[in-house]
């Protein structure tokens, strides 16, 4: 058995909702240097021979969900610094050593995310935007080419306009946020939506500002021409990495 590290925090408590870790492992706290690490035991083999199933989506999805489940449960009442997936140590002593060595880095992240949540906002081009109304069948070859040209241009212009609007939405949300990140838009088949995603932003927002954020998203969606999707609150994964 080796030790899987989920998250680090100060004055952490284990969730009392029966949350368990990867493969149903029992959660424990490892205490060192004023920090607590949430860990559980995992089979060494599963992580050592990762080549065998790192592309196995069933395995990966289960580990990712378990990882996220633990981080979310612990992060419900406490500021936590979430670790990236699959950070494992040989034993608890090694975790203690890491807590000592990286104390400053953990503390910096915890200071940054304390009392704040991450919210995700995605913007999609609204269905039908930029589509020319169905026109009559062109009566000549030249008319057909003209119509196709207009249609192509309208499509390009619609995407360009949507991207500009996405920048505006991002800027408006940023005004409410302590920090922001823009992730690459997800592909359509991944989102399961036919419309193109033009914004995939993460916003670190004071907990007290959550209602303002919701209201702003609603306002932006009703006044603008993009469909917006709000997810969260998330444990601030996007803001736990190095300062940028």
């Amino acid at each position: 058995m080796i030790t899987y590290l989920y998250a680090v925090g100060r004055d952490l408590e284990l969730p009392d909702d029966g949350s368990r870790g990867i493969d149903g492992g029992e959660l424990r706290l490892v205490d060192e240097a004023g920090l607590q690490a949430v860990v559980s035991d995992v089979e060494r083999e599963a992580f050592e021979d990762l080549d065998e199933h790192r592309e196995d989506l069933t395995w990966l999805a289960a580990v990712a969900r378990a990882h996220h489940g633990v981080v979310a449960a612990v992060g419900r009442d406490h500021a936590v610094a979430p670790l990236s997936l699959a950070t494992v140590y040989l034993d608890d002593d090694r975790v203690r050593a890491v807590l000592r060595e990286s104390r400053e880095a953990f503390t910096a992240v915890l200071d940054r995310v304390e009392g704040r949540d991450e919210w995700g906002v995605k913007a999609y081009v609204r269905p039908g935007a930029g589509k020319a109304a169905a026109t009559d069948r062109p009566t000549s070859g030249a008319a057909y080419l003209r119509a196709r040209r207009e249609a192509l241009r309208a499509g390009d212009a619609a995407v360009a306009a949507a991207e500009r609007e996405a920048d505006e939405v991002d800027a408006a949300l940023a005004a409410l946020a302590v920090e922001t990140r823009r992730h690459p838009p997800q592909d359509r088949s991944l989102t399961g939506r036919a419309e193109q995603m033009v914004l995939n932003g993460a916003y670190l927002v004071e907990r007290a500002g959550a209602d303002d954020l919701r209201a702003l998203v609603e306002k932006l969606a009703s006044e603008g021409s993009l469909d917006l999707e709000l997810t969260g609150p998330w444990v601030p994964y996007s803001f736990a990495g190095g300062a940028t």
Partner: peptide, 30 residues
């Protein structure tokens, strides 16, 4: 082909007759 045809129309590389023929062919193909 359609995009190439549109580009050539935009660059005035085609005679009216060529434009009409090409457009008709592409329309029928579509």
């Amino acid at each position: 082909m359609e995009r190439q045809a549109i580009r050539r129309v935009e660059n005035s590389e085609l005679s009216e007759e060529q434009e009409e023929d090409l457009g008709t062919a592409l329309m029928l193909l579509s």
